[in-house]
Amino acid sequence: QIFVKTLTGKTITLEVEPSDTIENVKAKIQDKEGIPPDQQRLIFAGKQLEDGRTLSDYNIQKESTLHLVL
């Protein structure tokens, strides 16, 4: 699982696999929060994550925290 922290300070927990794409993660966030993926920007280690890449591409491991910017 990974954590996604929103600007409001809320933390969302997501069940993911390293092979999941960023697009996939955004879809999971939409399921939980109702935020359309095209409004979501995910930041990890100061980098904006691209939809077509996977979590493992960015070396995002379990218990990692991503930041969600709208």
Rank of each mutant, 00 (worst) to 15 (best):
F44S: 03
Q61D: 09
V16T: 05
K32I: 13
V69I: 13
E50N: 07
G34H: 07
D31P: 02
L42Q: 00
K26V: 02
I2M: 05
L49V: 04
K10M: 10
L49I: 04
V16R: 02
A27G: 10
G9A: 04
D38I: 10
I22Y: 01
Q48F: 13
Q40K: 02
I22V: 10
Q40V: 10
T8Q: 11
V25K: 00
I43L: 13
I60T: 02
V25G: 00
K5L: 14
D38E: 12
Q1D: 05
Q39A: 09
T8H: 13
T13Q: 08
I22P: 02
D20G: 03
S64W: 05
D38F: 11
L14W: 01
Q39D: 08
I60A: 02
V16A: 07
G46H: 06
D57Q: 08
T13W: 07
D38W: 13
I43C: 15
L70Y: 11
G52R: 09
H67G: 05
K5G: 03
I22F: 03
E23D: 08
Q1A: 09
R41W: 09
S64E: 08
P37Y: 12
V16C: 12
I12C: 03
E63H: 13
K5S: 08
D51R: 04
Q39T: 08
L49A: 02
I29C: 02
E50W: 05
I60R: 01
G34A: 05
Y58E: 03
Y58W: 02
T21L: 10
K32L: 12
N59E: 07
V69G: 06
K28A: 07
G9D: 05
G52D: 10
P18W: 15
I12Q: 02
H67S: 08
Q1T: 15
P36H: 11
K28V: 04
G9Q: 04
K47S: 09
T11V: 15
T6G: 06
S19E: 12
L49P: 01
R41Y: 11
E17V: 10
S56N: 09
G34S: 05
V16Q: 02
Q61W: 07
S56R: 11
E17G: 08
S56E: 12
T21K: 08
K62F: 15
L14Q: 00
E15K: 08
I22M: 04
G9C: 08
T54K: 12
L68S: 02
E33R: 05
I43W: 15
P37W: 12
T6S: 06
T8C: 15
K32M: 11
V69R: 11
Q30L: 10
G46I: 02
V16W: 12
L7N: 13
D57I: 03
N59C: 10
I29Q: 00
L66F: 04
